[in-house]
Design a protein around this nucleic acid. Structure first.
Lengths: 220, 220
DNA sequence: AAGCCGTTTTGATACACATCAAAAGATAGT
DNA sequence: ACTATCTTTTGATGTGTATCAAAACGGCTT
């Protein structure tokens, strides 16, 4: 948090994130239809969120990692409208939304922060629509991998190595393609020497090439 | 607005929506990259928002009508990240975001309202990802038409008649398909007697059939 | 009313991805 | 270590939608 607060302020702000919660791999943090009470800040671990069609088809709507906030979908109806599943053992801060709102009124910086988080999610989903609606399968996977390393790198992990926490099927669902197509795209990139794949480990050997796949007219 | 304010309050709240702005058909309300200052509440008219790939491909991210808010994308970076174009002559209320934030701190109902609007947009985009990622072209168009009449009906328009404000190409961009495919789906529905199409006029003759196309296992 | 332009429709063909199928490889339990 | 199960890879085939092309239609200008 960029601004300095006095001790009293800090104590109040701490209250909002006081309680923590552990979620084991495979467990739900919340599910579609459940009453909404709190946002969750991920401390450690990795989540996926997803929505479903009535006939059971799942669409992964996002993958979230440490430092990211989940649960924003629940605000509008006071009910969650998606499922959040831990893809590895995780710890979250439970932030009762009533507290968040109360403190936001008191601390403009926090208010601004909350607004930015929600806006960021809207912008992210805009770009996902662009991705799913306009790109072909290999472009989607390349964009996905670049996004993932970039976020991991921002958290102090390697700039060129990923250990995927999700299956091919989950990647496919997120990107609007079938698991076989995901696998084929991985193999193709691997054959071309752009990446190195061993199960869920992915090494990025040629990042510029990946970027070029996403944006063929590499005019940046 | 559901809650009652005293006169002084109303005056202050009015300030936030004091200035109005007219946008002619085809004109931009804001464009990608432009500094973000205000949200816009649509009073009359019809807008589309879109993002673009570097190579010029456009993805329509939404169609907005009276009563809806646009500009939320700009909050996170203080820059707009999409374009908003009027599809018919329109009037908007300009709501400087600094005012919105200030008054939100003062009036919890307003704060709650702002949060819900942002959350609603997040949920809408989740369902768009599901639509584009999992459904076939005819299902997408059916869902699109149902969504449109529902929103129009909520504004006092017909439950079964639409005058489209957007071209086949714009519909296609929004739904992740080509304009020819949109046209073919329209023709198919028309042949089947589900809808009546004459240019941009669409009459819905058999709403249940449309719903069944979206959700084949009509278990609701 | 004639001519021009952009939009929409319709047809023929091509291709990207889905689907179906099976083998190979990992992972877990006994 | 060995079987059972799940995940991933790879191949063969099918299909939905894109692409290419041209005609039909409607709106606008003069």
């Amino acid at each position: 948090m960029p601004i300095s607060f006095d001790k009293e302020d800090m104590k109040r702000l701490d209250e909002v994130v006081a309680t923590r919660h552990h979620v084991k791999q495979g467990e739900l943090l919340f599910r579609d239809g459940e009453p909404f009470k709190s946002l969750f800040a991920i401390r450690t671990g990795f989540f996926k969120t997803s929505v479903s069609t009535p006939d059971g088809h799942e669409q992964v709507t996002g993958f979230q990692m440490a430092g990211e906030i989940i649960g924003l979908d629940g605000i509008v109806t006071d009910q969650h409208s998606c499922n959040a599943v831990a893809l590895e053992d995780a710890e979250v801060c439970v932030m009762p939304f009533a507290n968040v709102e109360e403190l936001s009124r008191e601390f403009p910086v926090l208010q601004r922060h909350v607004h930015k988080i929600m806006s960021r999610e809207i912008v992210r989903e805009n770009s996902m629509m662009l991705l799913i609606g306009n790109m072909r399968s290999e472009e989607r996977l390349a964009a996905f991998l670049l996004n993932l390393v970039q976020r991991l790198h921002a958290r102090g992990f390697s700039q060129s190595e990923i250990v995927l926490r999700m299956s091919r099927e989950e990647i496919g669902s997120y990107l609007g393609m079938k698991l076989e197509t995901v696998s084929r795209a991985f193999s193709k990139f691997s054959d071309e020497g752009i990446i190195e794949v061993k199960q869920r480990y992915v090494g990025i050997l040629n990042a510029p090439a990946l970027k070029k796949i996403v944006n063929p007219t590499g005019c940046v």
